[in-house]
Design a protein around this nucleic acid. Structure first.
Lengths: 192, 192
DNA sequence: CGAATTTTGAACTGATCGATACACAACCAA
DNA sequence: TTGGTTGTGTATCGATCAGTTCAAAATTCG
């Protein structure tokens, strides 16, 4: 048919995501996106239509990857309490690098805009809540979480805790401080 | 000596703060700042030097006001647990409006820049942690908080919880969900 | 090979960015 | 009233913004 692409689209999205993650949506110029991806302006606009659309691609690229990793842990072996602890550990270790969470950064900068970006953010929240609620249900059954806990409430609590840990990371808190937060949060839901 | 100002500087900072809070640092143009404050460009730059400096003024205006309100509650009547609960309640009620927290938004957008803005953010974190640590100490003494709690850890946990609540508000969580989060967080530290 | 189709690079669009220059208006002290 | 000083309005600065145009380059199919 015609001339093939000289680049890998997914790799370009990955590079763009790094740029958006580092500087935020507004502070990342199209020029920087070209340099980060190694593409020319024409290729960027021909492939991704607009800066906004590329941002949306970057965001979903991030959320699907992160949700996948999180789901792998929560669907893995061990009690629900152990799996939740493992998730919090990964959040802390990832949050020590000072870029924070791409989703939290975007929520803080843009809120929930009335477009595909907002839809992606809502979807990420819903999927996280569903995963944690399911795990909380399992935890009450396997006895690793306290009796009488509301799974939906636990899910909100865990997502809030993770969001809080990410913000504390941006505030400059060190590893010990973040683990102290996670330990207290866990003490609210694990069986004693 | 010379011609006096035609406007109230503090009122102008308040208006600028509203604009920055609503749209973030990068997305707020100097034109918008002029319209929000009702000042001409000359007056803005003559008074505040630069967009960055006006942002720093707006940020400290916000943090001193919020820290004052928070300190008033924590220094007020009641047990430490009751005062902490009251603080969380105000955070929830304030966080339902969807602008989030100006400090959290700024942390997420800018991180901790190496200038006065970063210094203001660090100072805000330190003062919050000091206030909460002191209250946690009192709580262990008055018996309203659990024995053996580390005040510094509790402080990190509470600031993390507040930051998480603010992010959950931006995610669109409703009042009930936020109170569920706060209740679980409190259950980790209140005496039983 | 050659026609059709797509990508690519570079120049360029109008708009807007943060910030400044400067004339003039407004005020106080003498 | 007058001289000195400061605030204000307008016009404008060069730089950069997101996005477009267009012709040359590269590829596949006939």
């Amino acid at each position: 048919m015609a001339r093939p692409r000289e680049f890998d689209e997914t790799a370009a999205v990955e590079k763009a995501m790094q740029a958006f993650w580092e500087h935020g949506y507004e502070a990342t110029s199209t020029q920087e996106l070209c340099e980060a991806t190694g593409l020319g302006r024409s290729s960027v606009y021909n492939t991704f239509t607009s800066k906004r659309a590329l941002f949306q691609r970057s965001l979903t690229h991030y959320t699907t990857r992160e949700l996948g990793k999180r789901k792998a842990i929560l669907d893995g072996p061990g009690t629900a309490a152990e799996r939740i602890t493992a998730v919090l550990d990964t959040v802390i270790e990832a949050g020590l690098g000072n870029r924070g969470c791409f989703v939290v950064n975007t929520l803080a900068e843009l809120g929930l805009p009335d477009d595909e970006v907002g839809a992606a953010l809502r979807s990420d929240t819903e999927q996280n809540l569903a995963m944690f609620a399911e795990c909380a249900r399992e935890g009450v059954l396997d006895g690793s979480l306290r009796d009488g806990l509301d799974p939906a409430g636990v899910a909100e609590f865990l997502l809030s805790t993770i969001s809080g840990l990410r913000v504390m990371g941006r505030r400059g808190s060190n590893r010990d401080a973040l683990y102290a937060v996670a330990d207290l949060a866990l003490s609210a839901i694990v069986a004693r």
